[in-house]
Every structure is written in structure tokens, then in C-alpha cells.
């Protein structure tokens, strides 16, 4: 059995007296969409923040395996997790560079690659042709994701002027421009209308199937979760209460209880969970 792309072992995160994440373990695999669901305040975003290096876990080990090399994420600074281990993320409240154009947002995402190509600025300053080539390639990659996210026409608009749905898609495109092996999406469907939500499903499937990128998805919209995830993890009060395929999780009495607070009403749950 090969190593999973991401292995989370005994992850615990304490904020003072509050235990936001309590001894959570799970795996995420290459070419799969793994959904993390749970009621508000369950600790989902905190798990993401630990994976992405924004918080240092109180206890636990986070191992990402890329090209058979293990990276211990809990020991790496956030920018190395993105740059070296190649974990990309989006944010629950969108974080774009609002005054820069859509295209520039995608070029900034390729910073490390371009930095090397520009000889750490020195060669670039004197117009070294190798840099021009690298930049053209970066634009090509950006254009590829612009086409995929339907943003090509607005590529030269400032990111802050895009409608909400466009900003969400841009954030995903920007994350993909870092060429990640694991893409962590924090509630990407929040605030989208049904059509946009369906487009998002298509995009995520495309990322999974064509790029073999592992996707870790926090989601509230259960239609998204049940339709596209290969694997669902349910958190409640910081603990993992279920882990399995969407069908198994959907019928798990503990999950039903967590979402509705009363175990009997499983018929209604079918619609919600």
C-alpha cells in the first residue's frame, strides 16, 4: 500500500482552554476529493489552518508525501508548505489581491518559479531573455486556468471588481497556478447560486480527474459534498465522528444527530446531509 497523499495523525489544536480540534486522524488521497463536513464551529477551518501552517498544532503529525518524499507539515513555515510541499488553499472569506488584475493574481501565484527564472531579480532587471520565456510560460499557465474558470474575458480587470462568484473561481484558479498536489478549499460554494455551484462541481471534478490533484474540501452545501466527494470526514465539536464514503456517512446515526440534534428524524436528514 502506498503512502496517502496527506496523512493526519492525532491532530489536536487548543486555543487556551478551548479544544478546537481533538485527536483527529484521517487520510486524503491523490486523485480523490475528500470532504470535511460538520456544523459551524466544529473545527474544520482550524484543521485547514494547521495543514497550511497558519497554526502550529498543539499535538499531532501531518505528513504530506510528494514524489515519495515525506514532508512533515507541522514543522514547516506556511510559505514552504505552499512552495515546497505544494499544498494550496483558498479561504473561507476570499483573499485575493483586489487592486491587482485577475491575470496578475495568477502570475503572483507563480512567484517562486518566476523568481528563480529572473535570477532573483538581477537577470530580470537587465532583460535577460530566459526570463521573458519563463514569463510567457507563466502567462500560458494562467490562461489555461482562466479558460477553465471562465475568466479569460475579464483577465485585465482588477480582481476586486469581479462579482462574488468570479472571485471564488479566481481564488481556485490562483491556487491551481501554484501547481499543487493537494488543494484545500474552504467552503468554495458559499454564496454561489445553483448554477455557479454546478459549474464548481464540474471544475473540481476536472481538477481531480485531469490533474490528479488531491482535493480537500470543506463544504456546507451538501448537494456538492454528496455529488462529488469520494470520501467524507465528519467533525463535531472538534472530534471526528464519521469517516467513509458519502453513502455510509449519510446514514450514520451519529452524523444525523450532529446535524439535527435528534437521532430519529432520519428521513429529513436525507435531504440535508
Amino acid at each position: 500500500m502506498t503512502q496517502p497523499l496527506l496523512r493526519v495523525e492525532h491532530l489536536t489544536m487548543r486555543f487556551g482552554g478551548l479544544i478546537a480540534v481533538n485527536d483527529v486522524s484521517f487520510d486524503a488521497h491523490e486523485g480523490q476529493i475528500t470532504a470535511v463536513i460538520g456544523p459551524n464551529g466544529a473545527g474544520k477551518t482550524t484543521v485547514f489552518n494547521c495543514i497550511a501552517g497558519f497554526y502550529k498544532p498543539t499535538v499531532g503529525r501531518l505528513t504530506l508525501t510528494r514524489n515519495a518524499t515525506p514532508y512533515l507539515l507541522e514543522r514547516m513555515p506556511g510559505n514552504d508548505i505552499a512552495g515546497k510541499a505544494r499544498v494550496a488553499r483558498t479561504f473561507q472569506n476570499i483573499r485575493l489581491f483586489p487592486k491587482m488584475t485577475v491575470l496578475e493574481n495568477l502570475i503572483v501565484a507563480q512567484h517562486n518559479k518566476l523568481m528563480r527564472a529572473s535570477g532573483f531579480t538581477l537577470l530580470g532587471l537587465f532583460g535577460w531573455p530566459g526570463y521573458g520565456k519563463a514569463e510567457a510560460e507563466a502567462v500560458d499557465l494562467a490562461r489555461y486556468w482562466l479558460d477553465r474558470t471562465n475568466l479569460t474575458d475579464v483577465a485585465d480587470e482588477v480582481a476586486g471588481s469581479l462579482p462574488y462568484g468570479g472571485q471564488r473561481r479566481l481564488e481556485i484558479a490562483r491556487a491551481m497556478c501554484t501547481e499543487p498536489v493537494l488543494l484545500c478549499l474552504d467552503e468554495p460554494a458559499a454564496g454561489l447560486n445553483p448554477r455557479e455551484s454546478a459549474d464548481l462541481n464540474t471544475l473540481l471534478r476536472f481538477i481531480r480527474d485531469e490533474h490528479k490533484t488531491g482535493v480537500l474540501l470543506i463544504e456546507h452545501d451538501m448537494s456538492v459534498v454528496m455529488q462529488i466527494s469520494d470520501h467524507v470526514i465528519v467533525l463535531d465539536y472538534g472530534r471526528k465522528i464519521a469517516d467513509g464514503t458519502p453513502d455510509v456517512v449519510r446514514n450514520d446515526p451519529k452524523v444525523i444527530a450532529a446535524y439535527l440534534g435528534e437521532p430519529e428524524d432520519s428521513a429529513a436528514v436525507q435531504g440535508v446531509v
Partner: peptide, 18 residues
Amino acid sequence: RAWEALREDEIACTALGI
């Protein structure tokens, strides 16, 4: 570009490996 991005959002920059 990284300078300007940093001015706009430092956390997003870190998440992009800068």
C-alpha cells in the same frame, strides 16, 4: 509584483509560497 501583493494581502501571499 510580490511587493504589491504583500501590500494587498500578506496571508494570501504566504499561502502562495511567497
